[in-house]
Design a protein around this nucleic acid. Sequence first.
DNA 1: CGGTGACTTGAGCTTTGTCAATCGAAGTGG
DNA 2: CCACTTCGATTGACAAAGCTCAAGTCACCG
Lengths: 233, 233
Amino acid sequence: MPIEMMIRKLRLHSELVQDDLSALRSIVTPVKYFPQDAVIVREGDISTQSCVLMSGFAYRSKVSEHGKRQILSFHIAGDMPDLQGLLLKKMDHDLTTLSPAQVGFMSHLALRRVIAARPSLGLALWRETLLDSVTFRQWIVNLGTRTAAGRVAYLIAELHQRLGTMGLVKDEQFSFPVTQSKLAEALGLSIVHINRVLQSFRAQGVLDFRKQVVTLRDIEKIVELGGFDDGSL
Amino acid sequence: MPIEMMIRKLRLHSELVQDDLSALRSIVTPVKYFPQDAVIVREGDISTQSCVLMSGFAYRSKVSEHGKRQILSFHIAGDMPDLQGLLLKKMDHDLTTLSPAQVGFMSHLALRRVIAARPSLGLALWRETLLDSVTFRQWIVNLGTRTAAGRVAYLIAELHQRLGTMGLVKDEQFSFPVTQSKLAEALGLSIVHINRVLQSFRAQGVLDFRKQVVTLRDIEKIVELGGFDDGSL
DNA sequence: CGGTGACTTGAGCTTTGTCAATCGAAGTGG
DNA sequence: CCACTTCGATTGACAAAGCTCAAGTCACCG
């Protein structure tokens, strides 16, 4: 029942009554399946619908004129990574799958209708977009203040926390189907350097990143390096 | 009539009728005057009101556990830098004045009342918070993909554009009351390095940054270095 | 079996940071 | 008005983090 992932996430932050939830459920299209590395929405597109990631991973990215690409955020089941399109018609970045993914869509027309009828739902969705902002702000701090090792550790800690609340972590281990090259694009580092950081983490028994699976070996150390702050809101 | 700055900015992005605008005006408290470097809201505070910057400059910042501070964004007249507090009760960052500033406040109670009565106003405010996000995303690209000189150039180009739409640029010159140390905190660079970049810009006749005033001398070059993209939404 | 994509490794180099000192303007108390 | 302090800007010398280039390895796939 993949659609429940979205509901689950929404309920983490907002109090919604059953009627709100079923109104929302009712406008989500049947799930579509996307392969790995498929573009869901492209920068410049005029969006007429927003999506919900039901399973799998996705990421948002933007290329700077220099041709360098920056990954802005990673997304997991339950996320609505292009909800902002509801009010900002023109996409300012790309949204791409990182793994095969199940995606549901909600047309903006239907969303507006449902929000007008149920203001509390509108507020809950607004809040979701604000939480998105919080993550971006943390990301800025990450890029601006931390060394390479700190950035990697932070990213892992953040994902660990988010996947944890969605029940996607088992035995301090989770799937994260990303290449080192994408990690580099996310963290503003070179591939070579990412590789070296990961190796040193492995050697020091901090964490292991192999075959798309992350294994946390020394959480204390990771949190210390990455200075991750759960930041309960 | 400083409150008109807010209205002016809102109307840039949303169509609002006079009644919406006057409803909003009516809940803004009389302006308060803040000196330079005064904290308006602090990380961890539970916010019960949001502010509107009527004149002057402010910035948002966050300290990473390492004690290093990161400036997240700069704000100018018309901005509502802590609007997200309406739905995210706990502040995740500080808001501080960069210069003496006039600030109006809107209590969250009143805001919620007015939004409930006028959904279009709610959407306009939601959109404002989304524009905030856009800026953060650009900032991530800035930190992640550009060299020191590019980052500085980008920041200047962004400010130039934003101040321009608010009518605060004259003769390709604008006031930006920031120290080099704060620039360093915003751009994730050391003070010394910022100083060198500014000097080289001055020497090359790209731009001049003296006594809190920025003078653009070669806009082409600035846009090229910073790769600024107006990104009309 | 050859090809492709991801990961690894080494060497040398560039950008940026650190440390330490100096300078200059503005403000303060005497 | 002068000595003194303070804060921000500036400079030089040196160190470090991270980048680029280039080559090689390894697993997988047609």
